[in-house]
């Protein structure tokens, strides 16, 4: 009885080990592709390899964000920052935020979220995203209107909207902060 169970478990474990080894590389590749696609979507005109030159930006609360610098002919033209908020309705929200050197938002892509389908998931809609594009958080208050800002929250999903804009603001601030520290 015990032997049968041990054998079943052992065979399953070995089989899983093989599949894990076999899919390890494709999985890593798929993750990289997702990231690369997001970088390409939020930043244009660079001729370097932003993934290779990746560095980390620290946020006010001690987290660090991945930052992918874009350069053309060696001159910085902007960054793509992988921003995160844990204040969403369920799970973490991951964004890729593209800023130019002045800190103006060029584009934002939602990499991953687990918000309510049909409500918070509308953060990927153009109507919501467009409010952020070509604004500079230094002059535009990118908080939802309920909090005194300029962003129209998604109806029925204030929490998701708030989390989204918080992640964007944090990405901007850590970029600003990192820049000031360098000069």
């Amino acid at each position: 009885m015990v032997i049968a169970l041990v054998v079943v478990t052992a065979v399953s474990a070995v089989a899983l080990g093989f599949v894990y080894q076999w899919t390890k590389e494709p999985i890593a590749k798929a993750r990289l592709t997702t990231q690369l696609k997001a970088i390409e979507a939020v930043m244009t005109g660079y001729d370097n390899n932003p993934v290779q030159e990746k560095f980390f930006l620290s946020t006010e609360n001690g987290d660090s964000l991945e930052c992918f610098p874009g350069k053309k002919g060696g001159t910085p033209i902007g960054v793509a920052i992988k921003a995160k908020s844990s204040k969403g309705y369920s799970g973490d929200i991951w964004l890729m935020v593209g800023l130019d050197t002045a800190g103006t938002i060029r584009n934002i892509v939602v990499i991953e979220h687990k918000e309510t389908p049909g409500l918070g998931s509308k953060m990927t809609s153009e109507k919501f995203l467009n409010q952020f594009l070509n604004t500079n958080p230094a002059v535009t208050d990118l908080r939802v209107k309920k909090d005194g800002g300029t962003i129209d929250a998604i109806s029925g999903a204030t929490i998701s909207s708030r989390a989204f804009s918080q992640a964007v603001r944090e990405a901007y601030q850590s970029y600003r902060h990192g820049k000031d520290a360098h000069h």
Binding site: A4, L5, V8, S12, L16
Partner: peptide
């Protein structure tokens, strides 16, 4: 007597295979 645990181990193994394959491809 160990039929159910064995079945679950087998099923769980296949589910993990699906999970890995989906994440990869």
């Amino acid at each position: 007597k160990v039929r159910i645990p064995s079945f679950i181990v087998i099923i769980a193994a296949f589910v993990t295979v699906v999970q890995l394959l989906m994440e990869a491809y």
